[in-house]
Design a protein around this nucleic acid. Structure first.
Lengths: 342, 342
DNA sequence: ATAACAATTGGGAGCGCTCCCAATTTTCGC
DNA sequence: GCGAAAATTGGGAGCGCTCCCAATTGTTAT
């Protein structure tokens, strides 16, 4: 079946190209009769508008980009990202936008793909993973002319739109919870400290201790990179200092820590309590199931698209923001249940 | 900076639109002098061609779609898919194609998104996750006119292009390995039996047993759905029948099975040996690390794109296929190391 | 130097749509 | 029923590119 054009549909329905276009785009000012005739013909023929022509004429593509900078190496290993992407994809579906994926593996990719992103007319807007604070690609996008929303607030981007969660408050809640349960030597495994999520969660840890009059001991702070292996290694560094609890800045790292602790023949939560961060599926499957700080990852992705569309469709470039609250999910690894706490 | 056009670049370089177009598209028959002048102007101005106009005129978009049917609910939870997608994305980058993601969450999505996929001119081709055999969307794409490659061979698609792995042979290898190690009561946890991967791996299990003169016991066969929970549940069903080994059709299910076995105070591999399938990162992190059948997931995605581009660029619609071999990766869960086997 | 041919170049036509204005038709008030 | 205003409609112009043909320029053999 050859591809029909507006003109041909018009001829078949006895109206002009212009009227058919109006029907398709839900413009008012089309008589009921004409609209119905056109809709019938479209239905019968299975006509579909040519998107390239539409983009060319309207200067809008109805395509959004999801940009994953090179600094986000974990895009395919950390379950966080698929979940985020899922939210983005759903929002795109609902709003009749197509989602394109731009993943930079190398500086070569950056050079080659970036033009495709920034060129006006190809993408209507982009969502950018901004986990690492100082990736130069972020400022490049920042100064470009394409509407954009960052996922994660990179610092120094005062005027930028972003979605994020209350990382510091979440960590604060986690550590406070452990303190309430009577833990005295609370350690932490942080994320990378060049990422806002890593810094903010560490800050929340420190603040919770201080607010309750506890000292912060450097030997109880280990740094990871959000990977399971790094959690394992960090825990092994921590164990000689005899912590009785660890706040781990991500569930995946917590899984690694769990393993290290169990290999050391210590019991969770009896000997060491654990609280993670994220509430990804693996957290509830582990043994013991992980107490953790839940962040609404999918909603983050969804909201990022909504903010972006708002900017695009209103033509309003003023920064849009949304910072989500976190929630403490109590399972077995913190020991609260044993104490009849929950 | 306003967007330049071919015409303007031409004027600046003292040549015509046609010549500039030829330079950009690497056509021969442009004099050295003219080419250099044009390249200089492009360099200075940062000119980028308008993709919509190019698509409209050339009838090709250089966009590929990755289609995830509704039946693939696990797209965001099973680490398999991110890895596959990674291969696809890399191949797209390398070949200067843009990757668009089409994920169907509901029949609503299917109805709304499908036109965007099938309409000639929007996508040059699609890669379709064909894990479930009888999803009607697959035959719809099959009979459509857009070039496509399936990931996973759905049955009844004799003329189709696909990439896949030797599931049956892989399973056969796994079970043979367990038999060689002297295991007598080998159970299996299969994938869903409406998926070719599920069926084929089960067939390999059966064949390996039969070929070595062993009986196949129905009570030693449990069915899962590739999720960790289903692996856990299946293992619990199996344990009362006292297997001394389990071939699990995916690593994620194997992790669930491991948990069930450890909760029953049995030791892996001493009491029960385990061999998984996939060789995803979690397989090597578990305790004990999982012996498994490695499949080259990323290469699958990469190859899918290559086959698709071959079809598109040659204009040759004859089916392209690639079936990858698997590889036995011996770690601790099968007991081979203890026996001085590896 | 000249004819014959090859390489290069310019620019018309057209891809299928949106936007918009002017022309036409319908509706409404009196 | 009439004029004026409102609603509807047709179609020109243009989005920025590719494709292709005809015109021009350059090259080679004689």
């Amino acid at each position: 079946m050859k591809n029909l054009t507006l003109e041909e549909i018009g001829k078949m329905a006895g109206v002009s190209r212009g009227t058919v276009s109006r029907v398709i785009n839900n413009h008012p000012n089309v008589s009921k009769k004409a609209r119905q005739r056109v809709l019938d013909v479209i239905e019968q023929t299975g006509y579909l508008p040519n998107l390239a022509a539409r983009s060319l004429a309207s200067q809008r593509s109805r395509i959004l980009g999801l940009v994953v900078p090179r600094s986000v190496q974990a895009f395919f290993s950390d379950p966080y990202f698929p979940r985020f992407t899922q939210g983005v994809a759903q929002a795109c579906n609902q709003n009749d936008y197509t989602l394109s994926l731009f993943i930079f593996y190398s500086s070569e990719d950056e050079r080659k793909l970036f033009p495709r992103i920034s060129r006006r007319g190809h993408l209507d807007g982009v969502i950018v993973q901004a986990t690492t604070a100082n990736d130069p690609i972020l400022s490049t996008i920042r100064t470009g002319s394409i509407p954009h929303v960052f996922a994660g607030r990179a610092p120094n981007f005062e005027g930028a739109s972003f979605v994020d969660v209350e990382n510091e408050a979440g960590a604060y809640t986690a550590v406070s919870h452990l303190l309430q349960l009577g833990r005295k030597r609370i350690a932490t495994i942080t994320g990378p400290l060049d990422q806002t999520a890593g810094m903010d969660r560490k800050r929340g840890y420190v603040k919770a201790l201080r607010d309750r009059g506890h000292d912060v001991h450097d030997e109880l702070i280990a740094t990871g990179d959000f990977s399971q292996t790094s959690g394992y290694n960090a825990a092994r560094k921590l164990l000689p200092h005899a912590p009785d609890a660890i706040f781990v800045a991500s569930d995946v790292m917590a899984l690694g820590a769990l393993q290290a602790i169990q290999e050391a023949d210590l019991k969770v939560p009896d000997d060491i309590a654990i609280v993670g961060f994220d509430d990804l599926p693996p957290a509830s499957y582990s043994s013991p199931p992980l107490t953790t700080i839940r962040q609404p990852i999918m909603r983050l992705g969804f909201k990022a698209v909504e903010l972006l569309l708002d900017m695009i469709e209103s033509g309003n470039p003023s920064p849009q923001r949304m910072v989500f609250d976190t929630e403490l999910v109590i399972r077995d690894s913190c020991g609260a249940k044993q104490e009849g706490f929950a």
